[in-house]
C-alpha cells in the first residue's frame, strides 16, 4: 500500500514534470520541471528495487546535469534578435504555434506506432510471480568488473574524453 502510494507520487511527479517541460514558455522553468521529472524517475526506480540506479540518478542528474543546464542557460542568456541575417523573422526560441502543431503531428504518428507495438506485446504478456526486492549493490559491483568490464572501461574512457573535450571546446580563444 505504501509502495503503491509512493509509486503514484513518483509517477505523478514524472508526468507533471514532463508536461511542464513540454508546455512552459520559460527555459529556466523548464529546467526546474526537468529536475522534478528526474526525481520522479528516481522514485520509480526505487519502487522496482533498483536502489543503486535510483541513487545514481539522483547524484548524476540532480547534482550534475541539471546544474550544468542551469549554468548554460545563464552563460548564454540575453540574446533577443528577432530576425536572422536574411531579414526573415525567426521562430521564437521556445517555439510558436506552428512548431507545436508539427510537434503534435509527430507525437501522434510516433505514439500510434508505439502503442500498436506495445498493445501486441501486452496481449501476450503474462505476469509471473515476482521475486522479493533485494539489494542490488553487490550484484552490480560484481557484474561491473566481470561480465561488463569492457563497457565499464569504455565508459571511463568516454567520460575522460568528455571531460577534456568539454574543457577544450568551451575555453574562450584569443582573437
Amino acid at each position: 500500500m505504501f509502495n503503491d502510494t509512493f509509486f503514484l507520487l513518483s509517477a505523478g511527479l514524472t508526468l507533471a514534470g514532463a508536461l511542464g517541460v513540454v508546455f512552459t514558455k520559460n527555459l529556466m522553468h523548464a529546467c526546474v520541471m526537468l529536475l522534478g521529472t528526474l526525481f520522479g524517475v528516481a522514485g520509480l526506480y526505487a519502487c522496482i528495487g533498483a536502489d543503486f540506479l535510483a541513487a545514481s540518478q539522483l547524484v548524476i542528474y540532480a547534482g550534475g546535469v541539471v546544474i550544468l543546464m542551469l549554468f548554460a542557460v545563464m552563460l548564454t542568456g540575453g540574446s533577443s534578435d528577432q530576425a536572422n541575417k536574411f531579414g526573415i523573422e525567426k521562430i521564437a526560441g521556445m517555439g510558436n504555434t506552428k512548431t507545436y502543431i508539427f510537434a503534435g503531428v509527430s507525437v501522434a504518428v510516433i505514439s500510434l506506432t508505439l502503442l500498436k507495438i506495445m498493445a501486441g506485446y501486452m496481449k501476450t504478456f503474462e505476469q509471473g510471480e515476482l521475486p522479493p526486492l533485494t539489494s542490488t549493490v553487490e550484484e552490480i559491483g560484481t557484474l561491473l568488473v566481470t561480465d561488463h568490464v569492457l563497457a565499464f572501461e569504455i565508459s571511463s574512457i568516454l567520460l575522460l574524453g568528455a571531460l577534456v573535450g568539454a574543457a577544450a571546446i568551451a575555453r574562450p580563444r584569443k582573437g
Partner: peptide, 20 residues
C-alpha cells in the same frame, strides 16, 4: 510512463528552437 516520457521528449525536440 516510459512512453509518456518519450513522446514528451519528442515533442520538446520538435517544438523548441533553443538548443538548450
Amino acid at each position: 510512463l516510459s512512453f509518456a516520457l518519450f513522446i514528451a521528449g519528442i515533442a520538446v525536440m520538435v517544438a523548441r528552437k533553443n538548443i538548450i
